[in-house]
Design a protein around this nucleic acid. Structure first.
Lengths: 129, 129
DNA sequence: AAATATGTATTAACCTCTTAATACACACCA
DNA sequence: TGGTGTGTATTAAGAGGTTAATACATATTT
């Protein structure tokens, strides 16, 4: 459990993002137990209320569920899990396309830059293992 | 002069972004006069100080310059103008690649989605003319 | 000289997010 | 039975950033 926080976005938003990424990549199984609010707050050195805020939103989105006073769990609904990945990808694509089109970058140039950058990052990741 | 504001980012940041896009696409010539702080504020229905904040940052970045108490002008330095486009593109590419890699989207899928989305947007833009 | 428009500066109000301090109900376990 | 660990809720305070209101100096124009 380790999250790199930036100073731009609210902490609870970044926590949600972290869980979504983990769910989308299969880092969490359906129904799997996640850390309690207090435990998460301890791990990430954040306030328990901030953890609660993140969990509450995730519950409202159907990403996690809570039974009684037990630690929350990842949803069992495979449809929801598939959608998490879809939404993250679509959001990234839309944002990127909107950006490059707003400055009239031709499609070919955009594709080329993505390809180049993707592979460079990939290499750097592999080298640091 | 028309800017679509979102509620996420500070207004002055979105104003700067608007000018950068306009500079990057050649919508402003080097040395061209831009609206005064108060005029911009009127056009965009924002506070004059917010306009001032945006202009001040752009001046610190070398994008615009001000002589006496005349309306500011776009920089005459072609190098700065080229860099605006470069930075906007790189920022978009980095952000996009980081996002798709964080959820293990294969390069080919990412490229395909960008291509698809780019062309759909393009068509919609052309239809609405 | 007066009016208007410019950039600039200072101060205050406002808003969101974060943190904090408690409190409550419930369940489990030693 | 008492202690501990859950989730949940309420209230308040703090901090940072954004926006707003106002004032000032200067230049241009009428």
């Amino acid at each position: 459990m380790d999250v790199k926080f930036n100073n731009r976005d609210p902490v609870y938003i970044q926590v949600i993002r972290h869980f979504k990424e983990k769910i989308a990549t299969g880092g969490y199984e359906p129904g799997q137990e996640i850390p309690s609010r207090r435990e998460l707050a301890n791990n990430l050195k954040i306030n328990p209320n901030t953890a609660q805020r993140a969990y509450k939103e995730m519950e409202e989105e159907g990403l996690i569920f809570t039974e009684g006073n037990l630690p929350s769990r990842i949803t069992n609904d495979p449809e929801v899990i598939r959608n998490v990945r879809k939404e993250l990808i679509l959001e990234a694509v839309h944002s990127f396309v909107a950006s490059v089109q707003s400055i009239n970058v031709p499609l070919e140039e955009a594709l080329h830059l993505v390809k180049e950058n993707y592979q460079r990052n990939k290499n750097e990741q592999e080298e640091s293992l």
